[in-house]
């Protein structure tokens, strides 16, 4: 898994609550048996004017000029700023793969749906929860920067657990220790669990006696 230590990048704002996984990556793209290549279809229904399908070359489709990802000032953004309950809906990890494939490294929002939140960590995408007030401030500063035709950049430091704005204000965020450790070191979860093989086997032996119908 890709490590995450520090990251500075351009912010793209997504100013709506309950952005669901169907919106992040529509179902027709879930038919792929691969992990890569979802980026061009991130937010597909919002991003293009014509309907999309895996069989259609995206280059032949008309981008929706009003959708935020298509605006010139947000090209190359790597941090997505969202509203409450980001990533609600299905368990599809394709939603996370689409974000990372597009180049997003962190999503900052007041709250996330549980499964999306979990899936993010497995793919080196950092979901950061800040308070509603802090999020409001970020949206506002971003909009002001935008009026001045300046890109809005944030700096994230996972070790210090901070998000720093261009004016130098640092917001701190919570993250549980184990997840942080894995992200900082880019560790493989399965490998870590397999170090516990003996405990798993001992558990199974005990359960075979207690609840034999489960085996």
């Amino acid at each position: 898994m890709e490590q995450f230590t520090q990251h500075s990048g351009l912010v793209v704002p997504m100013d709506r609550p309950n952005v669901d996984t169907d919106a992040i990556i529509p179902k027709q793209y879930l038919k792929s048996v691969k992990r890569a290549g979802f980026g061009p279809n991130l937010f597909d229904d919002w991003r293009y004017l014509d309907p999309g399908d895996p069989a259609i070359d995206n280059a032949t489709r008309r981008p929706n000029p009003e959708f935020v990802l298509n605006l010139p000032q947000y090209q190359g953004s790597t941090i997505l700023l969202g509203r409450e309950n980001f990533g609600c809906g299905s368990s599809r990890e394709h939603a996370v793969w689409a974000l990372t494939d597009y180049g997003i490294r962190a999503v900052i929002a007041p709250s996330f749906a549980d499964i999306f939140f979990n899936n993010s960590f497995k793919n080196g995408l950092l979901p950061i929860t800040l308070s509603e007030t802090e999020i409001d401030q970020l949206f506002q500063e971003e909009a002001e920067g935008c009026q001045l035709n300046e890109g809005y950049q944030l700096s994230i430091d996972l070790d210090a657990q901070t998000v720093t704005t261009p004016s130098g204000t640092a917001f701190s965020f919570e993250i549980d220790a184990f997840r942080k450790y894995r992200l900082l070191n880019g560790l493989d979860d399965i490998g870590l669990t397999l170090q516990q093989q003996d405990s798993i086997k001992a558990y199974e032996e005990r359960r075979k006696v207690e609840a034999p119908w489960l085996f």
Partner: peptide, 12 residues
């Protein structure tokens, strides 16, 4: 669960 976790359960 997500797909990474599906793999995790398969393996462990």
């Amino acid at each position: 669960i997500g797909t990474s976790e599906v793999e995790h359960v398969l393996a462990t």
